[in-house]
Simulated assay, not measured.
Amino acid sequence: MRLAWSGVVAASLLAGCALFKGPQMSQTPSESLWQERRAALERIDRFALQARVASNGSLGMKGDLRWQQNPDGSFDLRVAGPFGVGALSIVGTPSLVEVRSREGSQVTNEPEAWLRRKLGWTFPIAGLRYWALGLPAPGSPAVIELDAEGEIAALEQDGWRLEYDEYQPAGPVSLPRRLQLAKPEVTIKLVADRWDGLPGVDTAQPATEPPLQ
């Protein structure tokens, strides 16, 4: 379990902007640690993530997720259920992607809406590249809550609430191990089993844990 949160650090803060204190106010230790941590995380321009995902509600799904993030901003996301059922890939950039599945392929700038319409489930593709690292996505307001180590314990952005239950060592930084993403209609649990391809790091692999419940 995470340590008790140190409190809300920023309300309606534009992610990507620095956290500022007034001239008469000093930062708490957790806020100072967050500033250092955030700078290190923002330098991560590439990674390969292997994870397990499970969601409930009307958009329920369960399977394996693989995300390849490239330095040029492009990515390759693959999701597959048990034994490859419901496999799909989403390849492209934040502004334009190609979605491939048994239903065929389509180029779209709204992959989340496409998934919901065609497959009956969805997840936050736009923000996940940042949220998986424990960062707010740039360009939209975010509310974050920090723990004593300066790691994000909870994040609210773009209609989603994320709760970070566990972090794991990954070279010079710690990265999320277990997190939960929730909207009124769906809750998604994600367990990061393996981080590869981080700048200056070969592999970060935790011990094996039981399947998602």
Rank of each mutant, 00 (worst) to 15 (best):
L3Y: 15
L3C: 11
W5G: 06
S6M: 14
G7A: 07
V9Q: 09
A10H: 09
A11K: 07
L13K: 07
L13F: 06
L13E: 04
L14P: 07
A15Q: 10
A15F: 08
G16Y: 13
C17L: 10
C17H: 08
A18V: 06
A18W: 06
P23W: 05
P23V: 02
Q27C: 09
S30C: 14
S30M: 05
E31T: 12
E31V: 14
W34I: 12
R38E: 14
A39T: 14
A40M: 14
E42I: 05
E42Y: 07
E42W: 13
I44V: 11
I44P: 02
I44A: 04
R46G: 03
F47T: 01
A48I: 13
A48Y: 13
Q50H: 14
A51V: 01
V53E: 02
S55F: 05
S55K: 09
G57W: 06
L59G: 10
L59E: 14
M61E: 06
K62T: 05
D64W: 03
Q69Y: 01
P71A: 00
D72E: 00
D72A: 01
L77T: 01
R78Y: 06
A80W: 04
F83H: 07
F83W: 09
F83S: 05
L88R: 02
S89F: 04
G92C: 00
T93W: 01
P94H: 00
S95R: 04
S95H: 03
L96Q: 12
V99Y: 00
R100C: 03
S101R: 01
R102C: 06
R102D: 15
R102V: 12
G104V: 03
G104S: 04
Q106I: 10
Q106W: 03
V107Q: 03
T108A: 01
T108Q: 04
N109Y: 11
E110G: 00
E110I: 06
P111D: 00
P111A: 00
W114V: 02
W114N: 02
W114C: 01
L115G: 01
G120M: 10
G120D: 09
P124F: 05
A126W: 03
A126Q: 09
A126F: 05
A126K: 05
G127R: 10
P136Y: 03
P136G: 06
P138C: 10
G139A: 05
S140K: 15
S140T: 11
P141T: 12
I144T: 04
I144P: 09
E145A: 11
E149S: 04
E149W: 04
G150Y: 08
G150E: 11
E151H: 13
A153P: 01
A154S: 15
E156L: 09
G159N: 05
W160R: 05
W160M: 09
W160T: 06
E163Q: 14
Y164I: 06
D165K: 14
Q168E: 12
P169W: 12
A170N: 12
G171S: 10
P172H: 13
S174V: 15
L175V: 11
L175E: 11
L175T: 09
R178F: 13
R178C: 04
L179E: 08
Q180C: 15
Q180S: 15
L181A: 15
K183V: 15
T187F: 08
T187W: 13
I188C: 13
K189Y: 08
V191H: 04
A192Q: 08
R194C: 06
W195L: 10
G200N: 09
P206C: 03
A207K: 11
A207H: 13
T208D: 08
T208G: 10
E209R: 11
P211S: 13
L212K: 11
